[in-house]
Design a protein around this nucleic acid. Structure first.
Lengths: 330, 330
DNA sequence: TTGTAAGCGTTATCAA
DNA sequence: TTGATAACGCTTACAA
């Protein structure tokens, strides 16, 4: 492995001169500098990241932590993060799994974006307390070293619920996320608010998991209990897809017997028939903003929490209430 | 930042004793060891990854490089990789973008899995030459430090083409991947082989890009030239989806006017109507095997190249040839 | 069983 | 403008 020592020897200068030259310092003459650079290239010199990080106490690498790699939401989010990171001279690495948590406390990365419930809030606060910089996308957490960039869950769930109510639906199933999920809890709250305020509207919670399987299970329960057309708000699109999938095997029709809305506007929803109504937001912007905030707090800048705004996407999966003409299929 | 020095001071021992204790060496008595461990915990000691990596000349981190984060193929692949890595005491990080290439030469990671055409083969060979360990998933590359784990593209494309031919289709459009893509070239070769061997079968190549947009463009060309039912082999599912999407806006019907098969069996295909015929393989296994191979060559083990086997998935998107009864829609 | 000390490849301070 | 040197936090011979 060739180090600055080797270059120094070959160039007949000291290692500090080499270091300066390599880092483009103006302390060294252009002549010696270019000679050193030439030798470095000739020897195929590559700096050692560990040594640099050890000495400088920063790696210029940011990490984003995901619960798993499967989510359809992640692609654009990560691209948004990468773009900002790179433009600011940072590298981005994506991590998942309990083992990788150490990256932050062991200082392999300069900061972390968290979208991963396998981090407990206590764990994150502990890191923040030790001066590590964190941006959370999946919870509220107050600490000088933590910034939050959250979806406007309440607005989204309100839009979705109001849409169902406006279309005349009186019975709304809400398929929630896993126990303890911040997004799920927030969305649920908004649903209650809207539904309770509306007249004659009943809502029934079905415990879900934000995965397809949750939607499938919900579908079974809903069909079991079916007496007349119902509305369903799946708290994310993935469950809505699972639900559609389960229902596709039957005589029930989405947008007719089951009026369905999701949340996230993942790409797949565009290809469903009928098109899934859902709540949209810019995943790219979410990621970009998260990175920006993280870089700012790393630079010592004080920043406020941020919110990502959402909009309603209408779709054929929600029709108007017509129960009088629709009987139970099969 | 608390280091072993601080622990040593507080425990009244030398830093080497602390190091031994922390690493569970049997050279130190249980008594001093547990005393040291207690103090370490009390001080919230966390080892410094950079220092460890610098000294040991290994990071126990493996990197996987992707062209972007958007692909539907990646989720399971990465989970497969992660599982193997973690079980062997390695951490996995996912990287994308030109800037992140440095992770390998700068020794931030102990090895790399490449599924990213932004690495040129020359670049990879250069790294291999400098003794870095690499597994490639997207090209053939011979070097002692490089192992390849490739899809059986030829078998897959052969299965797909034969399926179309068997169903009686005589005119086959093939929508290829981007210029220079190894997977595309290999699949294309197999298509030619099968189609040329079959009787009366014409095939027409349409240059694609492995993205939805490529499928959409292909759809336009195909509909433009349409005279009677045709078969289309999109060299990946994503283009097939783009094609379906474009065609859904028209009177043309998949499985009737346009008989379509893809490649990859991404999750979305299961939810298409009619179900997309495609070529399946285990993405999880692909990732797992890639990690295994990488870890083996890092350990100095000599390994052979590996191949991932594929199977045909039939679907309603391919019907039997019935052109006599089908006229141009609209 | 524990301590001393060298060294991993950098950066950065201070002196020359 | 350059060089000598210490330091970053850790591992590991070797000595005690």
């Amino acid at each position: 492995m060739v180090s600055i020592k080797d270059i120094a020897k070959k160039a007949g200068v000291s290692i500090s001169t080499v270091s300066y030259a390599l880092n483009g310092s103006s302390k060294v003459t252009d002549e010696t500098s270019s000679r050193i650079l030439a030798i470095a290239r000739e020897l195929n010199y590559v700096p050692n990241a560990a040594a640099r990080t050890l000495k400088k106490r920063e790696s210029r690498i940011l990490g984003v932590f995901l619960t798993d790699f499967k989510g359809d939401v992640y692609g654009e989010l990560l691209d948004g993060m990468k773009e900002v990171c790179n433009s600011q001279g940072y590298d981005l690495i994506v991590c998942s799994g309990k083992q990788s948590h150490r990256m932050l406390p062991e200082r392999m990365i300069d900061g972390a974006v968290i979208l991963d419930h396998t981090f407990s809030s206590e764990e994150l606060l502990k890191y923040a307390e030790r001066n590590h910089k964190i941006v959370v996308l999946d919870r509220e957490l107050e600490h000088p070293n933590i910034n939050q960039v959250l979806l406007d869950n309440k607005a989204g769930a309100t839009l979705a619920t109001e849409y169902l109510v406006e279309q005349g639906h009186k019975k709304i199933y809400v398929v929630s996320g896993p126990e303890g999920s911040y997004d799920s809890t927030q969305r649920m709250k908004a649903v209650k608010m809207v539904a309770d305020r509306a007249e004659d509207v009943d809502w029934i919670e079905i415990q879900g998991d934000f995965k397809k399987s949750g939607g499938e299970k919900a579908a079974e329960q809903i069909m079991q209990e079916y007496t007349e057309p119902v509305a369903v708000f799946c708290l994310n699109d993935e469950m809505a897809i699972g639900l559609c999938n389960r229902i596709a095997d039957t005589e029930f029709k989405i947008g007719e017997h089951v009026h369905l809305i999701g949340f996230d506007n993942i790409e797949l929803t565009r290809y469903m028939q009928p098109r899934l109504a859902t709540i949209d937001y810019s995943k790219r912007k979410w990621g970009a903003l998260a990175s920006e905030q993280l870089i700012k707090i790393i630079s010592g800048e004080k920043v406020d929490h941020e919110r990502i705004y959402v909009t309603l996407v209408r779709g054929g999966s929600v029709g108007t209430e017509t129960k009088r003409s629709i009987s139970r299929p099969n």
